[in-house]
Design a protein around this nucleic acid. Structure first.
Length: 277
DNA sequence: ACGCCCTCCTGTTGGC
DNA sequence: TGCCAACAGGAGGGCG
């Protein structure tokens, strides 16, 4: 499940292969992922045009090409990679681009929660992007921002962290890990968090995301870097998926619960429901 | 406005 | 061994 570190890893891996290249052919083998793929629009605007930039906003990738941008979201199981020269398309290879240096790259997504859309002109005002919160690794995101957002909100803090209007790019894995690092129970109602606690949590989010980017992301099952290697942050997970295993800090077994149809993992001792001091 | 729940989809896993 | 239900979840959208 690609979150910010996975999408950023894919972006940096793929950018040198794509930027400055012209799109020579576009093969759309599946008409619809999360939404219908606008095949004719993409053909009209991107064929024989040069890919100028590859940016990331939250978990979205944006490739400037022709008079607008291709928007790509990897959903749950999406991958983007260069196809080996002689490779044939396989099951779940939904879109294949051929570039002017004969390389081909592929959008592969078994669960089809991903998206490929066309944005005319600049992407900032697009409905999917304009309401998004700050990038967690930029200055606009800090403890004050989290503190303001958490006032009068009764939702579990983990649910708040996964809300893209609050902060982008933080999904189940990194919300779980940041809460562990900050010593905050995932079900703690957001408005219980103190200012200091929000500061620690914001810093934990930034720390976890930076560490995960350094490791090339987290591979649980599907995710691969654009060169095919897994992401090695899985080896550093402290809580996610570790139900019953000893906490690396205090050896208490990691517990799990469901929050808003999502699994949450935490150490009952290191992450008390109420702030202890 | 907030918060809850449903939905899309397929591969994997676990129980009987 | 085989079948089937449960589960995984990003995030838009609907509803109360």
């Amino acid at each position: 499940m690609p979150e910010l570190p996975e999408v950023e890893t894919i972006r940096t891996g793929l950018a040198p292969c794509l930027i400055g290249r012209q799109i020579q052919a576009l093969e759309i083998r599946t008409p619809k992922l999360r939404w219908p793929i606008p095949e004719e629009t993409l053909r009209r605007h991107t064929l024989h045009q040069t890919i100028r930039t590859l940016e990331r906003r939250g978990k979205y990738l944006l490739a400037a090409c022709g008079p607008g941008h291709m928007l790509i979201h990897l959903g749950m199981s999406g991958r983007l990679f260069l196809l080996p020269p002689d490779a044939c398309a396989e099951r779940h290879d939904h879109v294949i681009w051929t570039l002017d240096d004969r390389t081909r790259f592929c959008l592969h997504d078994p669960r089809r929660f991903g998206a490929l859309l066309w944005i005319e002109g600049e992407w900032q005002g697009h409905p999917l992007l304009q309401e998004l919160g700050p990038e967690p690794l930029e200055e606009a995101f800090d403890g004050d921002h989290l503190y303001v957002w958490s006032r009068n909100r009764r939702v579990a803090i983990k649910t708040l962290l996964m809300n893209g209007r609050v902060v982008v790019g933080v999904g189940n894995i990194y919300a779980t890990e940041a809460l562990f690092l900050a010593g905050v129970h995932p079900a703690r109602p957001a408005h219980w968090l103190t200012r200091a606690c929000c500061g620690a949590l914001a810093e934990a989010i930034r720390q976890v995301l930076r560490a995960a980017i350094r490791q090339g992301g987290t591979t649980l099952r599907d995710y691969r870097q654009s060169d095919g290697r897994p992401g090695y942050f899985a080896l550093e997970l402290q809580a996610y998926g570790r139900t019953g295993a000893p906490c690396h800090r205090c050896a208490t077994p990691i517990a799990s619960l469901r929050l808003g149809q999502r699994s949450a993992f935490f150490c009952p001792r290191c992450q008390p429901l109420e702030e202890s001091n």
